[in-house]
């Protein structure tokens, strides 16, 4: 039986796809057979972030509509053992995903995978709803910024009332806050919401804090999930978050401003 994890946020552009790629890769690196499903129908992007865009033959909707089998559509990652990607369809038909179809595919994947990651589209429409409906756990990706925090709270509300677990009266969906694009300098200057501020408002457990980092753009340019970059603070923060998800206790890093050396302070860099 696989554990189904939705990577969600409400708001767009906060780092869901970046996080799905990093966390999925991290789970596979730790030996868990993992598949990442792109739910963003019409706006496929996970393939680019994972550098498999030229290997897409069939997609999620083809499998739902039985034009292809799962085995034909799953793309095996070339770098990391145990890692697979199921790309989104580029169809304009927003209703191509159905509840029954998604349920059938998840059940089939469940038989052979340990973790199924659902990379949610933005918004609270059908695609986002289907991505979270079957979840056992949710990673709520949030930026320290007013609209992102408010949208995350709405998504938490949906998880608590509209998910399968909520409807069936089962144990609630596990909630994990992932604070991304965090800038400790700006927090210290009082310009950006702090970790404590966001935790106070959303009141869910903190899985990790990913610093704002140039290495994330470089990683997506190259199609290498940032967690594979050992020199990147964002990559290390994602690796810590994966370990925490698997139950390890790991201290949070990169949450204090970097101490500038005297020389750098004098020359302003």
């Amino acid at each position: 039986m696989a554990k189904i994890i939705v990577i969600t946020s409400g708001k767009g552009g906060v780092g869901k796809t970046t996080s799905a790629a990093a966390i999925g890769t991290g789970l596979a690196q730790q030996g868990h057979k993992t598949v990442i499903i792109d739910f963003d129908v019409g706006l496929r992007n996970l393939d680019l972030i994972m550098d498999c865009e030229r290997r897409v033959v069939y997609d999620f909707v083809n499998v739902i509509e039985k034009d292809a089998t799962l085995n034909q559509a799953l793309i095996k990652d070339k770098r990391v053992e145990n890692l697979f990607i199921l790309p989104a369809s580029q169809t304009k038909d927003k209703d191509a995903l159905t509840l029954e179809g998604v349920e059938r595919i998840l059940a089939e994947l469940s038989e052979s995978f340990d973790f199924i990651l659902c990379d949610s589209p933005a918004g609270i429409e059908q695609g986002a709803y289907l991505a979270l409906y079957f979840a056992d756990a949710a990673v709520i990706v949030t930026n320290p910024e007013v609209s992102s925090v408010r949208d995350s709270d709405r998504i938490i509300g949906l998880l608590q009332s509209k998910s399968r677990r909520a409807e069936k009266g089962e144990a609630p969906v596990e909630e994990h806050l992932l604070l991304t694009r965090y800038n400790p300098e700006r927090v210290e200057n009082g310009e950006m919401l702090s970790i404590e501020d966001v935790k106070d408002i959303l009141a869910i457990p903190l899985l990790g804090v990913i610093p704002e980092s140039e290495s994330v753009l470089a990683a997506s340019n190259k199609g290498i999930p940032v967690i594979l970059n050992d020199d990147s603070n964002a990559g290390k923060a994602y690796a810590d978050a994966v370990s925490r998800f698997l139950g390890e206790e790991v201290k949070h890093r990169f949450i204090e401003p970097e101490k500038k050396s005297l020389l750098r302070r004098v020359f302003g860099r």
């Binding site: 007013v146 408010r150 709270d153 709405r154 009082g190 310009e191 950006m192 919401l193 408002i201």
Partner: peptide, 18 residues
Amino acid sequence: GSASIAKERLQIVVAHER
């Protein structure tokens, strides 16, 4: 700073929406 204004506004709107 503006972050504390952000927090106050968020607390109010989120409580209302909940």
